[in-house]
Design a protein around this nucleic acid. Structure first.
Length: 309
DNA sequence: ATAACTCCGTTCGGGTAAGC
DNA sequence: GCTTACCCGAACGGAGTTAT
């Protein structure tokens, strides 16, 4: 685990990384609660199979923002290098913002995977590392420590080194799951999918209706008992203001003020009924095709009404 | 504290099926 | 054949999550 503090060494390490295909990257930020947070560390891993963190380089850029800028220019803005982060939107605030190219976010990937394939209470890196990759005892206690102090403690450096390791393994497993959930629709086995649907339909209906029933009861109960909070739930409410005006008044108003209100209004069935004949109205029709799944109750009997033998 | 993003609850419109 | 009930998707806005 090389911990590099010398600006020249950091620069040459950055130069070496320009040849990489994929980099797993994490940052630590000091004073993140203040108005002027400072980038403290950039941790980089270029070999996803590393389990120990031996190949992680920790670049200490706290005193060298210009070196961080070199990292941004040579690595972050380079579309040829794939950069993997967890919750990349946070790190990108310090590493190139919207100008960064070819950035992968494991949090975003994880969000796209349905719960039944990734049944975890949250999608924090620690949780994914433990549940998806079976890393024991992932320590996140240093996460909110003082990254502005020097020297950094041993456990801070250990924490900093391990994050890219977790990241690379989580990334690998997420890619596997992603492949699993994105089959080619043309190749799908509709019989197998239908059978699976039948298998779980009963449990799904039972659970779904019970969950909703319970929710409704809890909501009604908390409202009746005037509770904003119970052991398990918070009840929030907000006021919603909807402003309405009669169509006539609106038209008059717009005309008087010379306001251009030339935008289309949907003629709902209700409106059409009220209008009656709409001859002379330049109505534009937009057609859309919506498809919808309908279940067959039974296996269909071989049709006896369309095949004449 | 922040920013980006998705989730969740709600409402609305339109379409289909059930019921008479 | 007509009305009613229900379901689905779209749209909207607040809540929640994630990193340090």
């Amino acid at each position: 685990m090389p911990y590099i503090t010398n600006p020249n060494d950091i620069s040459s390490q950055i130069a070496a990384y320009t040849q990489a295909k994929t980099l797993w990257v994490d940052t630590e930020v000091a004073d993140y609660k203040t108005k002027k947070p400072r980038l403290s560390l950039i941790q980089v891993l270029d070999e996803s199979t590393d389990l120990s963190g031996d190949r992680v380089f920790i670049l200490d850029v706290l005193e060298y923002p210009d070196i961080a800028d070199i990292f941004i220019e040579k690595i972050m803005l380079n579309p040829a290098i794939e950069k993997v982060f967890h919750n990349s939107s946070f790190d990108l605030k310090f590493l190139g913002k919207t100008k960064a190219k070819n950035v992968i976010c494991t949090l975003e990937i994880a969000k796209k995977i349905p719960y039944y394939l990734l049944p975890v209470p949250n999608l924090q890196l620690k949780t994914l590392a433990e549940n998806l990759c079976y890393f024991p005892n992932v320590d996140k206690t240093q996460s909110q420590s003082d990254w502005g102090q020097r020297p950094l403690t041993k456990s801070q450096l250990h924490y900093a080194k391990m994050d890219p390791v977790y990241l690379a393994h989580v990334h690998h497993r997420l890619l596997q799951l992603t492949q699993l959930i994105n089959p080619n629709p043309s190749d799908e086995d509709l019989t197998a999918l239908g059978q699976r649907y039948r298998e779980i339909e009963h449990d799904w209906k039972s659970l779904d209706t019970e969950i909703n029933h319970i929710k409704d009861r809890i909501k009604a109960a908390m409202q009746a008992q005037n509770l904003a909070e119970s052991d398990y739930f918070k009840l929030s409410s907000y006021e919603k203001t909807t402003k309405k005006v009669s169509f006539d008044e609106l038209a008059k108003f717009a005309q008087q003020r010379g306001i251009n209100l030339d935008f289309p209004i949907t003629l709902t069935q209700n409106l059409q009924k009220q209008l009656g004949l709409t001859d002379g109205l330049p109505i534009q029709e937009e057609k859309s095709i919506n498809s919808r799944l309908n279940f067959k109750e039974k296996e269909q009997d071989e049709a006896d009404d369309d095949i004449p033998f």
